[in-house]
C-alpha cells in the first residue's frame, strides 16, 4: 500500500468535477418534485442532453452553445412528459420510465454520426487571485465554469424556494394542489415550468459528461447517473443544501475509492465499490427529517 501516491489536493479537486453531473440533474429533479411531480425520466433527459450538447458543440465549435443546446434538448423532452402527465393525465411513474427508454433510443439515433468524434476544448478557469491561494485555490477555484454554474443553480434554487413568493407558490402546488388551485394558482402551468426546468438541468448534467468529464459521445454514456440523481433527491429529503452534500459525498467517495484501489489499499475491492452508495445513504438517512411533498406523484385535474 502506498497512500502517499494519493495527492489530497487533486483528490478534492476531482471530487467537485465528479459530483457536478449528478448535482445538476438532481437539483432540477428536486424542483420538479417540490412542485408535486415525480419524473423518473431523468436518465433519459440526461442522455438526450448529452447528445444534444455534443452535437451542437461539435457543429458550432462552442461548448457554451453546446450546453445551451443540451438544456433546450432536455427541456423539450421533458415537455413531452409534461403534456402526457399534466394535460392527458397519464400515470407519472409509467410515463417517466417510458421517457427514459425513449431518451436512450432517441439519443443513440441523434448521435449516429458523432461516435468517435472529438468535441471542442472546454478549458478550466483559473480564477485570478482566488485561484492562486495555495491548496484551496487548486481545489476550489481552478475548475471549468460549469462546476460553478452547477453551484449557482443550486444556490439559486435554495433561495428561490425559501425566500421568493413564486417559490412559495411552487411549494404550495406540490404540497396540496387542490388547495393551491382553490387559491387561484395555475397548478398545471407552474408544474409545466418546473418540469421544463428539471429537463433543462438534467440536460446540462448529461452534457457535462459528454463535453467535460468523458469528453466524447458514446451511446448509453450516462450509465445510470440519472437514477443516482433521483435517489439523492429522496435521501436529501427534498432540500437543496442536503442535496449538495449528498452529491459531493457521492462524487467524493467515488473518486476516493478509485484512488484507494490504485494505491493498493488492503480493503477488499467489493467494499470499496459499494462505499459511495453506502456512505451517501447512511449520511443522508441519519440526517433525514423531511417528508415528501404532499401531492407528489398525484394526478391533478381541476374538476376533482
Amino acid at each position: 500500500m502506498d497512500l502517499s501516491a494519493i495527492n489530497p489536493v487533486l483528490l478534492l479537486a476531482s471530487l467537485m468535477v465528479a459530483a457536478t453531473p449528478i448535482l445538476l440533474a438532481a437539483i432540477g429533479e428536486l424542483v420538479v418534485e417540490r412542485a408535486g411531480v415525480l419524473n423518473l425520466g431523468v436518465e433519459g433527459m440526461m442522455i438526450t442532453g448529452a447528445v444534444c450538447g455534443f452535437v451542437v458543440a461539435v457543429n458550432t465549435g462552442s461548448p457554451w452553445l453546446g450546453f445551451l443546446g443540451a438544456a433546450i434538448g432536455g427541456a423539450l423532452l421533458s415537455v413531452l412528459f409534461g403534456v402526457l402527465t399534466q394535460y392527458l393525465l397519464s400515470n407519472q411513474v409509467a410515463t417517466g420510465l417510458a421517457l427514459t427508454l425513449f431518451g436512450l433510443g432517441v439519443s443513440s439515433l441523434i448521435g449516429q454520426g458523432y461516435i468517435g468524434i472529438k468535441g471542442p476544448e472546454f478549458p478550466d478557469w483559473h480564477i485570478p487571485l482566488l485561484g492562486d491561494i495555495p491548496i484551496i485555490g487548486p481545489i476550489v477555484f481552478q475548475h471549468d465554469p460549469m462546476v460553478y454554474v452547477g453551484l449557482l443553480i443550486c444556490l439559486g434554487v435554495w433561495a428561490f424556494l425559501k425566500y421568493s413568493r413564486l417559490g412559495l407558490v411552487l411549494r404550495a402546488v406540490g404540497e396540496n394542489h387542490d388547495a393551491a388551485h382553490a387559491l387561484g394558482y395555475k397548478v398545471i402551468r407552474i408544474r409545466m415550468a418546473a418540469i421544463m426546468f428539471g429537463g433543462a438541468c438534467a440536460g446540462l448534467g448529461g452534457a457535462y459528461l459528454s463535453l467535460v468529464r468523458v469528453p466524447q459521445w458514446t451511446e448509453g454514456m450516462t450509465a445510470g447517473a440519472g437514477w443516482i440523481a433521483l435517489a439523492i433527491v429522496v435521501f436529501a429529503s427534498w432540500r437543496p443544501g442536503r442535496l449538495l452534500l449528498g452529491a459531493y459525498l457521492f462524487g467524493g467517495v467515488t473518486v476516493l475509492q478509485l484512488n484507494l484501489q490504485a494505491a493498493g489499499l488492503a480493503i477488499p475491492v467489493e467494499y470499496l465499490s459499494m462505499s459511495p452508495y453506502l456512505a451517501t445513504i447512511v449520511v443522508l438517512v441519519i440526517m433525514s427529517a423531511g417528508r415528501a411533498p404532499g401531492s407528489l406523484g398525484r394526478i391533478f385535474h381541476a374538476s376533482r
Binding site: 476531482s14 459528461l209 468523458v214 454514456m221 450509465a223 484512488n259
Partner: peptide, 10 residues
C-alpha cells in the same frame, strides 16, 4: 464511460 474516464484520471 464516466467511471472509466474517472479511473483513467486517477
Amino acid at each position: 464511460p464516466a467511471k472509466e474516464a474517472e479511473a483513467a484520471n486517477v
